[in-house]
């Protein structure tokens, strides 16, 4: 490739864990940098530029200012990649959307609430066109590498649309339900190589739902394994509040 793609990295409302996860590519960081020029990254460098080829964007949109900024990023970039659960689905921030926004403002900011305009936490895709997703909380490193390599090669990344159970079974992990835990793997989108179950933990659903989830069926599974209906939906909403808005019976 003659000119290296110019990459910019941005963050919105989130814990910045996804960006840190990028810096954590100890073995691959130099290989990554060999393919691209990073032209803007607040967490690691100074300065701003006018245009770039690929924008990696972390965090959900939760203030009017966020909306302006993401629109500007979209204008400046050829490809926009949402990075992590907050950017892809709204993430845990989306939980606030299940309550009246004024109540949330009051609780967080108290009497100063009028100084802090706030919106429901939105996925990037609800405001601008998102080309590709790197899911997970924090974003899945192996998926980032796949998406990144695809972009460098000029091919469209494949977004998996099967359950975490598939990856988990391929590794012959003991099913965490066997250990008496509650797991959202059956309706959660794979691509993380069943990271949490592989370490004996249950899946919290951070990568979002598969495209055609049977939510009634999942509710029954969760209730069958000891949750109340309300607890079941709260589990599902942890990372998917936006998608499940109005879906819960």
């Amino acid at each position: 490739m003659a000119d290296k793609p110019r990459v910019a990295i941005f963050d919105f409302t989130g814990c910045e864990g996804c960006e840190l996860n990028q810096l954590n590519f100890e073995d691959q960081l130099l290989d990554i940098l060999a393919h691209v020029d990073i032209v803007e990254w607040r967490e690691a460098m100074d300065g701003q530029v006018d245009e770039y080829d690929i924008a990696f964007v972390e965090g959900s949109l939760s203030t009017p200012d966020c909306i302006n900024r993401i629109n500007e990023i979209r204008r400046k970039t050829k490809v926009l990649v949402a990075l992590g659960a907050c950017a892809v689905q709204g993430g845990v921030n989306g939980m606030k959307n299940t309550r009246p926004i004024d109540e949330v403002r009051q609780e967080v900011y108290g009497d100063d609430k009028y100084l802090f305009p706030t919106l429901p936490a939105l996925a990037l895709s609800s405001v601008v066109k998102v080309d590709y997703n790197v899911r997970g909380c924090p974003m899945t490193q192996i998926e980032f590498l796949k998406v990144f390599t695809s972009l460098v090669m000029g091919k469209e990344p494949i977004e998996p649309d099967h359950s975490v159970c598939v990856d988990c079974k391929l590794k012959e992990n003991e099913c965490v339900y066997e250990k008496g835990m509650i797991c959202l793997g059956p309706v959660t989108r794979a691509g993380c190589d069943a990271h949490c179950p592989s370490f004996g933990q249950y899946c919290t659903g951070c990568r979002g739902l598969v495209s055609h989830p049977n939510l009634k069926g999942m509710e029954e599974i969760l209730v069958e394994h000891g949750l109340s209906v309300d607890e079941a939906w709260k589990r599902l909403e942890l990372y998917n509040a936006n998608e499940l808005e109005g879906v819960r019976p």
Partner: peptide, 12 residues
């Protein structure tokens, strides 16, 4: 199909 969540475990 009402109960099945299509996770694929039975196949795997």
């Amino acid at each position: 199909a009402g109960k099945c969540v299509g996770c694929g475990t039975c196949n795997l």
